[in-house]
Design a protein around this nucleic acid. Structure first.
Length: 267
DNA sequence: ATGGTCGCGCAGCGA
C-alpha cells in the first residue's frame, strides 16, 4: 500500500430481525465475509444486552442505538468508529424509536437506517414514514457532506421501482411501492446519493427480503428494499456489490439477506 | 400471498 492512501473498504448492511436470535448466523457470516463495516437493523436489543464483547473478540468495535423490543440499529467496524450521532441530529424533531445511527468509519461517513414500515397506504404510520424520510434528508444536511465519502444504508422499506418487486400487479396499492414512498426515496437521493446496486445491476427481481411465509424465498417472491446509497465520489469507486442470498438459506435465517459492497481507495 | 412464519414474550401484534 502506498503511503497516504486509504485501503479498500468492504461494507455491508443486514436487517437481522433480532440480533439475539441471529447472533450465531451473524458471527459465522462476519468470519466468512470479513466486511470492514457492517450495519445492522432490527437488532431488537437494548444497549445493555447488545453483544459488544462478542464483536470485540472477532476484532470489531461496535456502537448500538437500541430501545429493546423493537427496532434497534448498530454499526460494527474494524476501521474505527468516530463522531457518533444517535438518531436525528440536534434541531430535528427527535425520533423516540431507534432507527438511525451515524458514525465515521475509516474516513467514510456512515448512516445505518431502518425506515418505518408504514403499515398501510394512507395510515397514520404511512404519513409518519414519509415525514421520517424528509427528516433523514435534513439529518444528512447536518451530519454529512454530499461531496465527500458517505453511505446511507439499511432497510428503507421502499422498493425503488417495479423491477424491485416480484409482481408489480400483486403489489399495487400496498406499502413499499406507492408513488409517494418512491418520491420520498428519490428526494432523499437528490441530496446526493446513488443506489449503487441498481447502478451496477439492471436486471429485475434481484431481492433482499423475502417473507417467511408460504415459502416465498424458494418461490422467488421478494422485494429489494435494503439499499446501499453512496455519495457520487464514493459510488464512482464501487468495485462490486451483491446480495448474499446464501445468508437467507439454512437454519434460522433473517427474512433479509445482507447487501455487501466494496469500494476502491480515493485518488 | 385469500393464508402460509417469525420474534417478542406469554396474547396477540407487527413485519
Amino acid at each position: 500500500m502506498c503511503a497516504g492512501t486509504v485501503p479498500t473498504v468492504r461494507v455491508a448492511t443486514w436487517n437481522v430481525n433480532s440480533l439475539k436470535a441471529r447472533m450465531p448466523r451473524v458471527e459465522e457470516w462476519l468470519a466468512q465475509v470479513g466486511p470492514d463495516v457492517l450495519c445492522l437493523q432490527e437488532t431488537k436489543s437494548t444497549d445493555k444486552a447488545f453483544p459488544a464483547m462478542a464483536f470485540s473478540s472477532l476484532g470489531y468495535e461496535s456502537v448500538h442505538h437500541g430501545e429493546g423490543r423493537w427496532n434497534g440499529v448498530a454499526i460494527v467496524s474494524r476501521v474505527g468508529i468516530d463522531d457518533v450521532v444517535d438518531g436525528f441530529a440536534p434541531g430535528i424533531e427527535p425520533d423516540p424509536e431507534a432507527r438511525l445511527l451515524t458514525a465515521t468509519c475509516g474516513g467514510v461517513r456512515v448512516a445505518t437506517v431502518y425506515v418505518p414500515n408504514g403499515r398501510h397506504v394512507g395510515h397514520e404510520q404511512w404519513h409518519h414514514k414519509l415525514g421520517w424520510m424528509e427528516r433523514l434528508r435534513a439529518h444528512l444536511d447536518a451530519t454529512a457532506d454530499p461531496t465527500g465519502d458517505a453511505l446511507v444504508l439499511g432497510d428503507f422499506n421502499v422498493a425503488p421501482d417495479d423491477r424491485d418487486v416480484w409482481d408489480p400487479t400483486a403489489c399495487h396499492g400496498g406499502t413499499h411501492v406507492s408513488p409517494e414512498e418512491r418520491d420520498a426515496l428519490r428526494s432523499l437521493c437528490e441530496w446526493g446519493l446513488v443506489d449503487v446496486f441498481r447502478r451496477r445491476h439492471q436486471e429485475d427481481r434481484l431481492f433482499t427480503w423475502w417473507d417467511y411465509r408460504a415459502g416465498a424465498f424458494h418461490k422467488h417472491l421478494g422485494m429489494r428494499i435494503d439499499l446501499l446509497l453512496a455519495t457520487a465520489p464514493l459510488a464512482d469507486r464501487l468495485s462490486w456489490v451483491l446480495v448474499d442470498r446464501n445468508a437467507r438459506k439454512g437454519s434460522q435465517p433473517s427474512d433479509h439477506a445482507p447487501l455487501v459492497a466494496e469500494f476502491t481507495p480515493a485518488g
